[in-house]
Design a protein around this nucleic acid. Structure first.
Lengths: 165, 165
DNA sequence: ACTGAAAAACCCGCATT
DNA sequence: AATGCGGGTTTTTCAGT
């Protein structure tokens, strides 16, 4: 069995893990509240958070928006296959996709498909426009298999944390 | 053509859109900075943000964590098909999946598959454990088609905003 | 690596227009 | 709906352990 050690070699103790756990759920929690939960004062909390930010364990803090309330009620998932897989063709496709604002996720895959895309649009009409006028203008595209999200059972930005970090 | 009006009927002007745009990128921006960018004082910014929170346009504020740096270096996408689609069987599967911490996304789909799952684990070994001991313990599962993320071209939590909101 | 305290910056309500 | 001010919190720094 291959051991997969944390490649970035960042030592996180249980206090760090707890801080991350809290901030993943609510970035607005105060150092004071964190401190009282962890039975510390604000200074070590402050310094630990700054350290996690500096190490890029914490990448950013963001507001999460309800897409329905800003007129983006349709989420689609597209599994994409390309014709050719040369380095240049892959890079060209990635550049193409990176410039389409409707695409909120684009992952290069190992498996049956080449790319997974997550699309946020107003409605099916806007989706058709995306497919016809935006995605399929890339010459190397072979085929796209789309699915539409009816309901979200789980949808979290929080990375599941175990004590082995 | 069917007109799809914003179903929640929330009127957002360009100042609101700009506030949301900023907060989607950086939740830590101060009202003061937002105010100077939008050429206002802090009070209207404060009141608009509070309104957006109250209307649940802004759902929460979260810290985004680099999964690699906390030992979750493997992301997998699973397309799931179930045997039976009765209301009870679907609800049972959803409840099952909602209790697996490795599952950060579970969407019920219209299309060729029933569910899309996004999985975050340490490595392939942990993924196998997830499949064998966690996911496939649901009796109604027919088959799972897994893909593995090699690279992320785009990966944002920001909803693309147009002026028609 | 932590405590405790103090300085600086910001949040948030209020009076006003 | 906006401005401007002021009290209360929070963030951030610092001396001491």
């Amino acid at each position: 069995m291959i051991e997969t050690e944390n490649p970035s070699s960042i030592r996180l103790d249980s206090i760090d893990i707890n801080i991350i756990r809290q901030l993943q759920n609510n970035a607005k929690i105060t150092n004071k509240d964190l401190a009282s939960q962890l039975e510390l004062t604000t200074t070590p909390i402050y310094e630990r958070v700054k350290r996690l930010e500096k190490l890029k364990v914490i990448e950013t803090y963001v507001a999460l928006i309800n897409p329905v309330k800003v007129g983006k009620g349709l989420m689609a998932l597209c599994m994409v296959r390309l014709e050719k897989h040369t380095k240049e063709k892959l890079a060209a496709f990635e550049k193409h996709v990176a410039n389409i604002p409707e695409v909120v996720e684009c992952y290069h895959l190992a498996g049956q498909y080449d790319y997974h895309l997550k699309i946020l649009v107003r409605d099916m009409n806007a989706f058709q426009h995306f497919i016809v006028n935006k995605l399929s203008t890339n010459e190397n595209l072979a085929n796209v298999q789309s699915s539409f999200v009816m309901s979200r059972i789980t949808d979290t930005t929080a990375v599941p944390l175990t004590e082995e970090s």
